[in-house]
């Protein structure tokens, strides 16, 4: 199993005829993704030959969905057209819209997030997308650095996602979701934690955060209340100075808020083990899995322990043994 994206997902690519769109559509196909359509306004009726498959191009998302049954859109259009492209996908009612584009104005993200209003799940913007290894990939996450398995991963950062996927490639992943590093994103850590908790194909969760905002703190509160599967975390940006944007538009410490230290403490307070480096985080995941994981499909739900925010990870492990 997996979350949000499976082997049955039918993917359309907005901006497929652009250089990035073509390059990554080819990679998605190689990763096993069922890419069924491209969308480029004004280029409907053409098709693009990817060797093993020729993908038809439509002039609109609605047309592409009607003709091909696509239920996922991946957006590769330049920033100035991204807002319009996502609004079009939302209006067409696509269930999942993955926005890869970096540099999308925050106001556009706020607007398409509001318009989506629970009917379309938006992932991103400024994200690498998501991959369910062995099944499908929607975005730019490299498919050949890891394998299918039972770890779920949610991250603000692309390369840290790749790093962890690679370090844990022998164990493998159910789904890895890059939610993006912008101040306003469509899907949060919490959305992914909830989905992984409910996914019988996921045994444990890696959560990667970074400075800026309070998403990790809210995720910690959510974990305390709703997540029984083991969670290990990593937070980047301890050395970031106040008031400087560190690469990602959302990665900024403002005054005393959004610091890596506060996020680490919030996560540790609810029993999440937080690695000091990506490699240590991978080791923590290995030991979390070898300590005995609640079996998927029964024990986790049946023996969900009653506990407050301060429940220690160790207590949880004992209770679920």
């Amino acid at each position: 199993m997996a979350i949000f994206l499976t082997k049955d997902s039918r993917v359309l690519v907005q901006g497929m005829t652009g250089a990035e769109g073509t390059r990554h559509t080819s990679r998605m196909l190689a990763a096993g993704t069922d890419v069924v359509a491209g969308v480029t306004p004004g280029k409907g009726g053409r098709s693009v030959d990817f060797g093993e498959r020729t993908v038809p191009v439509f002039g609109s998302v609605a047309e592409a969905m009607a003709e091909t049954g696509a239920d996922v859109s991946v957006v590769f259009v330049p920033p100035r057209f991204t807002g319009g492209a996502v609004e079009e996908a939302v209006a067409a009612g696509v269930p999942l819209c993955v926005v890869i584009t970096e540099g999308v104005p925050v106001h556009d993200a706020v607007r398409f997030r509001a318009l989506a209003n629970g009917r379309t799940r938006i992932i991103g913007p400024n994200c690498p997308g998501l991959i369910s290894p062995g099944q499908s990939s929607a975005g730019i996450i490299p498919a050949d650095i890891t394998s299918a398995g039972r770890i779920g991963l949610v991250s603000k950062s692309g390369t840290l996602t790749y790093q962890l996927m690679y370090e844990l490639r022998d164990l493998g992943f159910s789904t890895a979701v890059g939610i993006g590093g912008d101040p306003v994103v469509g899907t949060t850590h919490i959305d992914c934690l909830r989905a992984f908790q409910d996914d019988p194909g996921t045994d444990a969760i890696v959560m990667i955060g970074e400075i800026g905002g309070d998403a990790e703190e809210r995720a910690a509160a959510f974990i305390a209340e709703h997540v029984t599967k083991p969670v290990v975390a990593y937070v980047a940006g301890f050395t970031a100075p106040e008031g400087k944007t560190m690469g990602h538009a959302g990665a900024i410490v403002s005054g005393s808020s959004g610091t890596a230290q506060a996020k680490k403490e919030a996560l540790e307070a609810v029993g999440v083990r937080v690695g000091r480096t990506p490699s240590e985080t991978a080791r923590l995941m290995r030991s979390a899995l070898s300590e005995g994981v609640p079996s998927s499909g029964g024990a986790a739900g049946a023996e969900r322990p009653e506990r407050g925010k301060a429940a220690a990870y160790g207590d949880r492990a004992r209770l679920t043994e």
Binding site: Q163, A236, T239, M246, T277
Partner: peptide, 25 residues
């Protein structure tokens, strides 16, 4: 972004570079 130490850091991806700074520190 200029910082005040002595190890120059270069990497690919904002998250990985932030992480690299932390690991150096």
């Amino acid at each position: 972004v200029k910082l005040d130490g002595r190890v120059g850091v270069i990497g690919n991806g904002a998250g990985l570079v932030m992480s690299t700074l932390d690991v150096v520190a």
